Amino acid sequence: MATEGPDLYENLKIRYPRGEQVLDFGSRPSPSRRVLGTLLAMGLAALLALGAALTAVATLRARDQAELRVARAELEALGPLLPPGPDGSRSPSDSPDVAQRRRDFLGRWLQGLGLGWRYHKGKIYYFSWDEKPWREAKEFCLSKRAQLTSVTSRDEQEFLARESRGGYYWIGLEDGDRNDTWRWVDGTVYSPANSFWAPGQPDRQDHGQQGREGCAQIHPVGTGLWNDHNCNIPFLWICKRDLGGP
């Protein structure tokens, strides 16, 4: 019986031709390269988003500065519109008292513009960032010595529709006794001939326990035309302050 020699595979050495790779990943990147590529893509997207945001901020700032210049020019010529003095009288336009009150008045209005109010032809408008039911929105405006906005002309309607940018905003129009006797809360006389309802509105739909629709809003349908809605449902809102007010 022959003596067993060493295991046939014990000293076997496998040689590969030069240049041949044992493992071939082909075109697939290594995990570290994939992570790096993802991070670079995310970084580029973040930079593009930041650039877009900065551009938007710059545009809004430029528009605000232009509005401030217009407001300042009109406010500086406000002698006849200034509120009366403590005794109820109006001083001559060249008196130091009127000059000081004009500066104070100008400062208050410009401060209002700086806090997010929009200026338009002698009035400033606040477009809210959060939502409230109609009556709470009304109280907010009163707390700012303003009113939920009335709409007195086509020009004002177009301004509000443009600035609302397709949103739903309460305005200061309510139907007090369910008989289509609409009224503006700031005392402006409501005129059906000078209203801007969307087709088929107001329709006073019934919302069950929440009640019928009895408050008006700027509505995206019809490019900012009016719609009646339930007063208890929260929406954005618009306040208005008259430049000649206190």
Rank of each mutant, 00 (worst) to 15 (best):
W134R: 03
V70E: 07
A73I: 11
C141I: 03
Q209P: 10
E20M: 08
W134D: 01
H219L: 01
C215S: 10
W134I: 04
G85H: 13
S191Y: 14
G122E: 10
A71G: 10
V221H: 12
D228V: 01
P199N: 13
Y168K: 01
G19V: 09
L225H: 12
G43D: 12
A53Y: 13
P17S: 11
N194S: 11
W117L: 04
S153C: 12
P6I: 07
D87S: 13
R135Y: 04
R135E: 01
A137L: 00
D24T: 12
R165F: 06
W109P: 00
P202A: 06
F196A: 01
L47C: 12
P84F: 15
Q111W: 04
A53Q: 13
W134K: 02
S143N: 14
D94E: 15
N232G: 05
G167I: 03
Q217G: 12
S153D: 14
G245V: 05
H229I: 00
L160P: 01
Y16S: 09
A41M: 08
G122P: 14
W109E: 06
G167S: 05
A66R: 11
I218A: 03
L113N: 05
G166P: 02
Q210M: 07
E174Y: 02
A161L: 07
Q209G: 08
Q21H: 14
C239M: 00
N179P: 11
E156S: 02
Y119P: 15
Q210V: 02
I14K: 02
Q209L: 09
F105K: 07
Q65R: 08
L106M: 08
H219C: 02
V189G: 15
Y190T: 07
Q65M: 03
T223G: 09
P31E: 12
L225V: 02
F140C: 06
L39R: 12
L78W: 15
K144M: 11
A52P: 14
L54Y: 07
V35N: 15
N227W: 13
R154Q: 15
S191P: 07
S95D: 11
T152Y: 00
R34A: 10
Y169N: 02
V189P: 07
